[in-house]
Simulated assay, not measured.
Amino acid sequence: MEKTSGWRGTREIWINAAYEALLESGIDAVKVMPLADRLGLSRTSFYGHFSDRDDLLNALITLWQAKNTGNLIKRTEDYAETIAEAILNIFDLWLLPDLFDSRLEFAVRNWAHTDRELARMLDEADIVRVEAFQAMFERFGYETQYANIRANTVYQTQIGYISMKKDGPFEPLEPRLKRMPLYAEIFSGRKPTEAEIARFLARHPLP
């Protein structure tokens, strides 16, 4: 956007700058003056869009909730003919940052170590996400106890990868794609069909 005289920016560019600072350097880097310097704007611009720093931090949390938890729940409800295909649908989350932002997830989990209220929200998000996975398994006929264990296995495996920076944007695409049909079989106990695998891979072409 062209900067004209008196231009004060937008709420969105402040949130984007805060997002980048959070991912690059953690929550301590999300402060008004460093962000103002980064954007070439003034504190007056910031306070034209936010009441205070906490207001900006809440906007980041809302972004995380909508993108990661909201999209995850939607993905568990997408149409699939089999449980294996449903799990391959879930794997789209781990491959497409527009659906699930692994870097943001990592940053929020680190942030939660120093913010008790965010830690509480993170615990709630974990519960809601596992419940969504469990409901997906139950939809395909799994008994409640087995559905819960499988749901936790799927979720904790991925969060473990993210926490170790071994998945998402942290690892090349090709080896991950090769493993995912095997993971789908292990998580569900059902082998994906060749057609299901082909549809999945078509959504994620190698560069």
Rank of each mutant, 00 (worst) to 15 (best):
I73F: 04
T76A: 13
T76W: 04
E77H: 09
D78C: 12
D78T: 12
Y79T: 12
Y79C: 05
E81W: 03
E81N: 14
E81P: 14
T82Y: 03
A84V: 02
A84Q: 06
A84S: 14
E85H: 10
N89E: 05
N89W: 01
I90R: 07
D92H: 11
D92L: 07
L93A: 08
L93G: 07
L95R: 12
D98G: 15
D98I: 01
L99H: 08
F100E: 05
D101R: 03
D101T: 01
E105C: 13
F106H: 15
F106G: 08
V108T: 11
V108F: 06
R109G: 13
W111G: 04
H113R: 14
H113K: 13
T114E: 12
T114L: 11
D115V: 01
D115A: 07
R116M: 11
R116T: 10
R116A: 15
L118V: 08
M121Q: 15
M121G: 14
M121D: 11
L122G: 04
L122D: 11
D123A: 15
E124T: 08
A125T: 14
I127D: 15
I127A: 13
I127H: 14
R129P: 15
E131I: 00
A132H: 06
F133T: 01
A135I: 06
M136I: 01
M136V: 01
E138I: 05
R139F: 03
R139P: 09
G141I: 01
Y142K: 08
E143S: 05
A147V: 03
A147Y: 02
N148T: 04
I149S: 11
R150V: 02
N152R: 12
V154I: 13
G160C: 04
I162K: 03
I162Y: 10
I162Q: 03
K165C: 11
K166A: 09
K166V: 01
D167K: 05
P172C: 00
L173H: 02
L173W: 01
L173M: 12
E174C: 01
E174V: 03
P175I: 00
R176F: 07
R176D: 07
R176K: 15
L177E: 11
K178R: 14
K178T: 04
R179A: 13
R179I: 03
P181E: 00
L182A: 10
L182P: 12
E185G: 05
I186W: 09
S188I: 00
G189Y: 06
G189C: 11
R190P: 08
T193C: 08
T193L: 14
T193V: 04
E196M: 07
E196D: 10
I197D: 11
I197R: 15
R199Y: 02
F200T: 01
